[in-house]
Each structure stands twice: as structure tokens, then as C-alpha cells.
């Protein structure tokens, strides 16, 4: 028994080739348009940057000692900040994820504050604490230790803004990772350090790497806290974003070139880390 619908379908199907996909996965028009506009907001400025960059000047700018210093300083301070994050943030994340104590959620909140704090406020706060006449800065100065406007200050500023990213990421991984594995390790005779080293740490590794990537990227782009707390001295505190800012005051072409370099470095690091380690560790 054939209905008219069947007939219509039969007539139509040879011409259609492979059948259309079910409509569930297709986007409705009224979502598609804002989605495309959203994408444009993200992509257009970067495209403009790439289009306007004087590419011919790139090799020359790359060999410029100021640029080389800034690039090297950015990579160095960001890397150092990540070392500090690993040494301090990993235990902090572990405590937040695994130890039951009163006020834990309050502490978790405190850790996330720098995440939403305007970077310039972070710089002012750091200056108030470690500045020449700061709360801790003044006694340190008496001991002959000066922190502000040094490379150390850059690392501290980077750590301050990047640590929350790292801690949140690692804590999430440690909380998601089954706490029962710690109990299993204990029943097998492992002390707490062995358990951390051989079970908790490796199971949280994808989160740790993700935290380092996020933190490094955040650190690489850090501007407000750095310029406030460390200043903008070429060779000691002028990181790439500060160099871009300085160049923009005088020579906008140079600023474009530096911006592109920073963009490329950021994208390079992200893709390298994501593809090579992040997914392997997650597997």
C-alpha cells in the first residue's frame, strides 16, 4: 500500500543523493546570526592587526635589542611565575580540595579575588604591601632588600594574577579525581606523601598542566599590575605588553609588530601545550 507521501518521497529521493542529516544538530537561524556576530567580535580585531602589520619590518624588529629584551623578560618572568605557582599553588590547591576545615569556602573565595580584581588595583595592593614605604616593604628596605621596580617585582605581580587560575584549575582536578583512590593507597600501606606523589599528583596532572597553560598565558599578557608595581624599565621590568604600550606612544607601526609577535608567541604556546601535553595527559 503506497500513500501519496511515499510516492512523493520516492520521486524525490533519487535526486537528493545522500539524505539530509536530522535537524537536531542544526542551528536555528535566530541563534546562528548572533553567533556569527560574536565570532566577528573576537576575530575582526585580530585580523585587522594581521592586515595592518608591516611584515617586512618584522625581521628587523625581532633583532632589535629592546624587543629581544622585552620578549626574553616576558618569557623568563612568566616561566618563573609558573615555578612559584607550582611550588605554592599545588599545596594550596591540595589543602582546598582535600582537607576539611572550617572556613574552607571562605578561603576558596579569598583565593579567587585576584581573578576578578582590576589588575591596576592588584598593582596598587602590591605596592602598598611591598613598596618602599609599604607594610612589609619598609622593614625589608631596612634589611637592604628592595622589591618594587625590579624583575622580582614583575615575577611577584605575575604570580599574584596567575596563581588563582592555577589553584582553581588544580583544585577542580583534585576534587573531581576520586578521593577513594587516596583511601585505596592508604590501605596498601602508602603514607600520605607517597599517596600524594604516586596517586594524587599524577591523577591531577591534566588539571595541573591546564593550570600552568592558563597561568602562563595570563602572566604573559599581564600589564596593569606590572606597570604599577614594577614600572616600565627596559631590560629589567619592561615585558612585552609594556613594550607594546611604550611603542604605541611614539611609533604605532612598531607597536603593531610587537603586538603580532606577542600574539604569535601566545598562540604558539597555547597550541603546543594543548596538542602535545594536555590531551596526552588527559588520555
Amino acid at each position: 500500500m503506497t500513500t501519496s507521501d511515499d510516492v512523493r518521497r520516492d520521486l524525490r529521493s533519487p535526486a537528493r543523493g545522500p539524505r539530509a542529516k536530522p535537524s537536531v544538530g542544526r542551528a536555528p537561524g535566530r541563534l546562528l546570526l548572533p553567533a556569527l556576530v560574536g565570532l566577528a567580535v573576537l576575530v575582526v580585531p585580530l585580523l585587522a592587526l594581521l592586515v595592518r602589520t608591516p611584515w617586512a619590518a618584522l625581521p628587523e624588529r625581532l633583532t632589535d635589542p629592546t624587543v629581544q629584551d622585552a620578549l626574553w623578560l616576558s618569557l623568563l618572568t612568566s616561566a618563573l611565575a609558573m615555578v612559584v605557582c607550582l611550588l605554592l599553588g599545588l599545596p594550596l590547591a591540595w589543602v582546598l580540595a582535600r582537607v576539611d576545615f572550617p572556613g574552607r569556602s571562605l578561603l576558596r573565595g579569598v583565593v579567587t579575588v585576584p581573578l576578578v580584581l582590576p589588575p591596576v588595583v592588584a598593582g596598587v595592593a602590591l605596592l602598598t604591601a611591598f613598596g618602599r614605604n609599604g607594610l612589609f616593604g619598609a622593614p625589608l628596605r631596612d634589611l637592604g632588600i628592595t622589591i618594587p621596580f625590579t624583575t622580582t617585582a614583575v615575577v611577584i605581580a605575575h604570580t599574584f594574577v596567575a596563581l588563582p587560575f592555577f589553584v582553581i584549575s588544580v583544585e577542580g582536578a583534585m576534587r573531581a579525581g576520586n578521593r577513594d583512590y587516596d583511601l585505596v593507597a592508604a590501605t596498601l600501606g602508602a603514607d600520605r606523601w607517597t599517596t600524594f606523589r604516586r596517586v594524587t599528583f599524577p591523577l591531577a596532572l591534566p588539571g595541573i598542566i591546564a593550570g600552568l597553560v592558563l597561568g602562563f598565558a595570563r602572566s604573559l599578557g599581564e600589564f596593569g599590575a606590572t606597570i604599577t608595581f614594577a614600572g616600565n624599565f627596559p631590560g629589567t621590568t619592561q615585558t612585552m605588553p609594556l613594550a607594546v604600550y611604550s611603542e604605541l606612544q611614539s611609533d604605532s607601526d612598531s607597536a603593531l609588530v610587537l603586538s603580532v609577535i606577542l600574539l604569535l608567541v601566545s598562540v604558539l604556546i597555547l597550541t603546543l601545550l594543548r596538542d602535545r601535553w594536555l590531551y596526552q595527559a588527559a588520555r
Binding site: N178, Y181, V199, L203
Partner: peptide, 15 residues
């Protein structure tokens, strides 16, 4: 960790 117990769980919990 100092008791000599072996524990086998329903859902194994292999590392």
C-alpha cells in the same frame, strides 16, 4: 596504612 588489611571494593578502584 599500618594495619595489615587488604581491601577489595565493589568498583575495583584500580589506579
Amino acid at each position: 596504612q599500618r594495619r595489615n588489611v587488604g581491601l577489595v571494593f565493589q568498583d575495583q578502584l584500580l589506579f
